[in-house]
Measured scan of single mutants.
Amino acid sequence: MGFKLLSKLLVYLTASIMAIASPLAFSVDSSGEYPTVSEIPVGEVRLYQIADGVWSHIATQSFDGAVYPSNGLIVRDGDELLLIDTAWGAKNTAALLAEIEKQIGLPVTRAVSTHFHDDRVGGVDVLRAAGVATYASPSTRRLAEVEGNEIPTHSLEGLSSSGDAVRFGPVELFYPGAAHSTDNLIVYVPSASVLYGGCAIYELSRTSAGNVADADLAEWPTSIERIQQHYPEAQFVIPGHGLPGGLDLLKHTTNVVKAHTNRSVVE
Results as ranks from 00 to 15, higher is better:
Ser62Trp: 05
Ala133Phe: 08
Leu6Cys: 07
Ile186Lys: 00
Gly242Thr: 13
Ala15Val: 04
Asn211Tyr: 15
Pro23His: 08
Ser155Gly: 01
Ser139Cys: 02
Trp55Cys: 02
Glu147Ser: 02
Glu80Leu: 14
Leu6Gln: 01
Arg76His: 08
Gln228Ile: 07
Leu217Gln: 03
Ser155Trp: 15
Trp88Ala: 13
His117Phe: 00
Ile104Ser: 08
Thr140Asn: 15
Leu13Asp: 07
Glu99Arg: 09
Ser181Tyr: 01
Phe236Lys: 01
Leu127Gln: 04
Ala15Ser: 10
Leu127Met: 03
Phe236Thr: 14
Asp79Arg: 13
Val266Tyr: 13
Ser62Pro: 07
Val54Glu: 12
Ser70Met: 06
Ser191Met: 05
Ile151Gln: 15
Leu185Gln: 14
Val108Tyr: 13
Leu96Gln: 02
Asp77Ser: 02
Tyr48Lys: 03
Glu80Val: 11
Ser38Tyr: 11
Gly163Ile: 07
Ile74Ala: 05
Glu233Thr: 05
Ile20Ala: 05
Leu159Gly: 09
Pro244Trp: 13
Glu147Lys: 04
Val121Leu: 02
Glu225Gly: 07
Thr207Glu: 14
Val42Cys: 06
Glu172Arg: 11
Ala51Arg: 04
Leu47Trp: 06
Leu81Ile: 13
Glu99His: 15
Val42Asp: 12
Gly131Asp: 02
Ala209Arg: 07
Thr253Glu: 02
Asp64Ser: 05
Gly89Thr: 12
Leu159Phe: 07
Pro232Met: 10
Leu24Val: 08
Asp183Asn: 04
Gln61Cys: 06
Gln235Thr: 02
Leu156Pro: 15
Gln228Phe: 15
Asp183Gly: 09
Ala218Phe: 10
Leu249Arg: 04
Ser16Gln: 12
Pro107Val: 11
Ile100Gly: 05
Val194Ser: 15
Met1Ser: 06
Thr140Lys: 00
Gln229Tyr: 03
Glu203Ala: 12
Thr140Ser: 03
Gly158Asn: 08
Phe116Val: 03
Thr86Asn: 00
Val126Trp: 11
Gln49Pro: 05
Arg206Cys: 11
Gly2Leu: 13
Ala95Tyr: 04
Leu143Thr: 09
Gly240Phe: 03
Ala179Gly: 09
Glu233Ser: 08
Ala25Asp: 03
Glu101His: 13
Leu96Arg: 00
Phe26Asn: 04
Asn262Val: 11
Thr207Gly: 12
Ala136Asn: 06
Ser31Glu: 10
Tyr68Gly: 06
Arg120Met: 02
Leu47Pro: 08
Asn92His: 09
Tyr68Phe: 02
Ser264Phe: 03
Ala129Gly: 07
Thr254Ser: 08
Asp164Gln: 14
Gly163Asn: 08
Arg128Glu: 02
Val189Asp: 12
Gln61Glu: 06
Thr114Ala: 01
Glu147Gln: 00
Ile224Asn: 12
Gln103Phe: 00
Pro69Ala: 05
Gly123Thr: 00
Leu243Val: 13
Leu10Glu: 07
Ile58Arg: 05
Phe168Trp: 10
Pro41Thr: 06
Cys199Asp: 10
Val256Gly: 13
Tyr202Asn: 14
Thr261Gly: 09
Ser223Asn: 14
Ala21Tyr: 13
Ile40Met: 13
Ser162Asn: 06
Ala136Val: 11
Thr109Tyr: 14
His57Ser: 04
Asn255Ala: 10
Ser139Phe: 15
Ile50Ala: 10
Asp64Val: 05
Ala90Gly: 12
Met18Asp: 02
Arg128Pro: 06
Ala66Cys: 03
Ser56Gln: 02
Val54Gln: 14
Tyr12Trp: 13
Ser205Met: 13
Asp118Ser: 14
Ile58Asn: 02
Tyr231Thr: 03
Pro107Ser: 08
Ile227Lys: 01
Leu247Thr: 05
Leu195Met: 15
Ala218Ile: 07
Leu106Trp: 10
His180Glu: 01
Ser70Tyr: 14
Gln61Arg: 04
Tyr68His: 11
Val45Trp: 07
Asn149Met: 15
Gly2Ser: 05
Gly78Tyr: 12
Ile100Thr: 07
Lys8His: 06
Ala66Tyr: 03
